[in-house]
Amino acid sequence: MLKEHAKLIAFFSQCQEVKGRKRLQKMIYILKKCGFPFSERYQFHFYGPYSEELTLRVEELNNLGLLDEEKEKKSGYYQYRYTLTEEGKNFLHHYDLDMPDMKPLIDLLNERSSRFLELVSTMLYFDELSREEVEKKVHTVKSKQNYTAEEIAEAWAFIEALRLSVTNDQ
């Protein structure tokens, strides 16, 4: 029961705070692609990989009183900020969850902007394609974002760093 919810609670407990739903979506996607056992199914949407299952599970955690969602008004839109409640922190003490340490990767992800995570997650979405094809895809499906060659090169380096980080942990 609630095993998938517990994995998300473990994620939030290692994050301290997540600012923005888009960031949350992309962070879980990238962690999943790095082999962390999240089960949420993703589909490609306008702004990259998106999981309705994740959105619903986060709402459930919020309704169960395990996760706090704060709505902040930004210029012209809202941004959501997530932190675990005390009950959320206690929940894991009663739950026997075998989850690998995500902290090093979370720290890497937290240093980056949502725009950059959107680029990385989009590139990972097409990871069955060759490097050239991935870059071509980024330019066609993300034409509006106008990612520069430097950003794409940086994203490749970042993906490599993620992979190294995962390999070193094994």
Binding site: H5, R21, Y50, E52, L56, E60
Partner: peptide
């Protein structure tokens, strides 16, 4: 014995969401 949650049947309610979350 099974607990079934609404997230076990993902269904996208209309949510305006935040900027650039989804269209």
């Amino acid at each position: 014995l099974e607990v079934d949650s609404s997230s076990d049947l993902p269904y996208d309610f209309y949510r305006p969401g935040e900027e650039e979350e989804r269209l």
